[in-house]
Design a protein around this nucleic acid. Structure first.
Lengths: 195, 195, 195, 195
DNA sequence: AATGAATGAGGATTCATTCAT
DNA sequence: GATGAATGAATCCTCATTCAT
């Protein structure tokens, strides 16, 4: 039991506990006590490390966005053509790391929180702009109206996410990915009509 | 001031105040006191009529879904061909009555609430099945895989909604409708490739 | 048990309980719970009527200052000559209503609180200016340097108060008054030297 | 860095930090953490040396009283006549060392603390008795009723102190000293009437 | 029908204090 | 000697809900 350097360990545990607790409860209405208990410490210690509940929520959100960003970057690094790049982005969005019940639930709640917190709004904006610019860079080579295509794909991804948040049965990422990719094919003219 | 028959009036006022308050706050974290004050009565009376806060939220949700359902039915009644029927559904989804900032905010919050309340989950399920069957009935005549098309359009609508919830500027329903209809055209093969 | 018009009753009870509790504890470190319990209600109700603990403390202070002001006014109204007026002010300052253990303890604590609260500072300033101008109006007719005399008497009164706050035995207002009046006589030249 | 003999250094630093912190905050509501940080150490170490927060406050108070006592003794040692001795005591009370904003604030707070702590009460009693006996020893040669005169001067000094605690502008010790000495002159019959 | 009155339960946050290293 | 780690206890405040009138 090392008594030094606990801070990163505790912070990490709290961030993960926060996400898990939100995922389980399906709400941001989780108490600091619940989170701390799940992370194996007192609520006082949680405050000691994060200062406030809001900061904890924010850190959890950053964590999720970072994971997502890393996943996208990794997928993009292995894609060669524009079409592959678009597909990589979509696949990363529904990768097993991101598209988990609890992550999705947290995600949905952050959308709500954006109404109350400037910080959350900003973070969500960063995510969206990044997704958009990633898509645009590739779609530019594939379609006449890349802006509209990017917006459509982005909205479709978000829509699938929100629907996922409601589902109770285990998740079928593959079906979902196929659905979105099918739409992408249509948008880029790769698909046969009346598919 | 007739003292009889106040019940429907009061209930209606409360439902509308609930939606307005959620829309303004952007959260379900609205107190009964706030809602009651906006509806011009005491919080005790609100409880008298609804029994609990949850029942009030549920009633508000039913109200929104009813409005939406009516709008869709109205639009459908004037559509002749399958293609027109699909377009009618999409247009109704973004009609001025439904696609208002506060309604959208409430909608988003109901998605969250679905995790906590069986009733809310059920209501949301009803809405989704209805939308799905409406779309299916028409898409059956237009595409090879109506299930997938219905799912795509449904997800797209939800995605546009959730994104709307974040926007701060006033709403542009027309752009949004065009975006979704463009996707519909692609799905149904009406559009030229590489649009 | 009337169920209407409780507000003034409750507020009054809380103000008195606040003073009593501060007097007993000798500190401003009294909890809202303690005060509310002494006033015979829940702490939630106390918050309902006052909004915050600070507001309760402020109300208690206003109450004490009002009592003091009324006492002084009453005494002044019966004084004819300038000398009598000065004596009336001194006597009122140590009247049984003001010079009670608990009131004095509260008073002392307000002096401390003045460092933290702009409102308290302001109230204390009002009291001091009022005392000063009352004294000045009379001393002008009695001494060459009324400013200095007023300052001396004011400081003496405050000093006697603060010392009273420490005493544990019951209070001897008469001795105290005599002490201060003796000093006043010296200042106004009424007393024999080497008294 | 010698590790031996740190105790007196640490204790001294903590005592001074305590006084400074109380002076800055104007309250006894100072956390051990604040004090320790100002003294350049951890709060755990502060507890190691003092055992409890109360002991730290007590030590701070002793420190102030010791400084005051030394100052008075020094001044007395240079005074020849009874009148000079009284003046020396007064001057020492308002010497630059004692009559500083932060010291006065601490002083005031100790008066409050006396209600809660037997130890503080005792210390304050010691101070008062010492002041009283010092004054009495000299006043015995100057006035008919030395007890009353001592009490008056003591109260006046305390009163000036408490008023000082409220002032926001920098301190004018000279004016204050003159005020008190003027009263002393009156008490001892040295002054002209109607001064 | 309507409301002011009232509260219990709960939650975020703070802090003195202890302990292991 | 020194400190980061850790917590229990307390406190202010909020809110859904109940009740008497």
């Amino acid at each position: 039991m090392p008594k030094l350097g606990m801070e990163p360990i505790r912070r990490d545990a709290l961030v993960k506990a926060t996400i898990a607790e939100i995922g389980t409860a399906g709400t941001l209405d989780v108490t600091v006590g619940q989170i701390a208990r799940r992370a194996g410490m007192s609520s006082a210690l949680a405050h000691h490390y994060f200062g406030s509940k809001d900061q904890m929520l924010l850190a959890a959100m950053r964590h999720i966005l970072n994971l997502y960003g890393a996943e996208v970057r990794g997928a993009l690094s292995m894609a060669a053509t524009p079409a592959e790049r678009v597909e990589a982005i979509v696949r990363a969005s529904f990768s097993s790391g991101n598209f988990r019940q609890e992550t999705v639930a947290a995600w949905l709640n952050f959308y709500v929180q954006a109404h109350k917190s400037e910080d959350v709004r900003r973070l969500l904006g960063v995510y969206r702009r990044r997704l958009r610019s990633n898509l645009l860079a590739s779609l530019r080579h594939l379609v006449n109206d890349p802006d509209r295509a990017a917006e459509t794909i982005g909205a479709l991804i978000d829509g699938v996410y929100i629907r996922q948040a409601l589902r109770q049965s285990p998740i079928r990422a593959d079906e979902t990915i196929e659905l979105v990719l099918g739409a992408v094919d249509l948008l880029t003219g790769k698909a046969d009509d009346k598919a």
